[in-house]
């Protein structure tokens, strides 16, 4: 594999061909916020928080998701332009309105100085990042949890018939859920006579 050189935030960065902008930036110590990215999983570019601005020569700059876009020789990347920040703030505001109880959103909201009063908040907890869904499908290959519904009705759900078989021995998705609320989702699905594993966040839901 050959190496390519690109510029991220005015810093020359070398990266292996085939790596993403996000990986290249992080390896150079440049932090880009993400919600739906996980190093073990195929990136899907759905939270849009990792969007950066790229340009090349005289071409007008454009926005791309750094978790998917691959490094290119001579590419100029800016991770914190005004255009990028404006979008990130709005995305965080929108997610805040959906899941105000989520700690990861709270932390980012503070960092980016998000106006939390902008939208009426609802009482969801899940931010629909899909880490659990992809972890179960790609790493565990069980598909015990998935998305149901479309658009603003989308939600994450355990499929009881698979979850009852697979989840008691596993529970790994709980640990990667950035909101920490997945176990309560699971508790709603649980079937009483199964022996459930201990919930790391809410030990009272150990099924006993």
């Amino acid at each position: 594999m050959s190496k390519v050189t690109l510029t991220i935030n005015d810093k020359k960065v070398q990266a292996e061909e085939g790596t993403t902008l996000l990986e290249a930036a992080r390896s150079a110590g440049i932090e880009i916020p993400t919600l739906c990215y996980h190093e073990k999983l195929t990136p899907q570019g759905s939270c849009r928080l990792c969007t950066v601005e790229i340009s090349r020569g005289q071409q007008p700059s454009r926005l791309v998701t750094s978790c998917i876009y691959l490094v290119e020789e001579g590419l100029v990347v800016q991770t914190e332009t005004e255009r990028v920040i404006k979008g990130r703030k709005m995305i965080l505001q929108l997610l805040w309105a959906r899941a105000p109880g989520s700690q990861v959103i709270r932390d980012y909201a503070v960092k980016y100085g998000v106006d939390r009063e902008k939208f009426e908040v609802s009482s969801n907890f899940c931010i629909l990042c899909g880490l659990c869904v992809r972890y179960c499908a790609e790493v565990k290959k069980k598909n015990a949890i998935g998305f149901v519904g479309r658009g603003s009705d989308r939600q994450v759900m355990f499929y009881p018939e698979i979850a009852a078989q697979e989840c008691p021995q596993c529970g790994e998705c709980w640990k990667i859920c950035p909101t920490g609320v997945l176990p309560s989702n699971y508790a709603i699905t649980r079937v009483p006579h199964f022996n459930w594993p201990v919930n790391p966040f809410f030990p009272q839901y150990d099924g006993k």
Binding site: C47, G151, D153, R154
Partner: peptide
């Protein structure tokens, strides 16, 4: 009709 995958479109 939005699939709900990405945040800006869905939310």
């Amino acid at each position: 009709e939005s699939c709900g995958k990405c945040v800006p479109c869905r939310e």
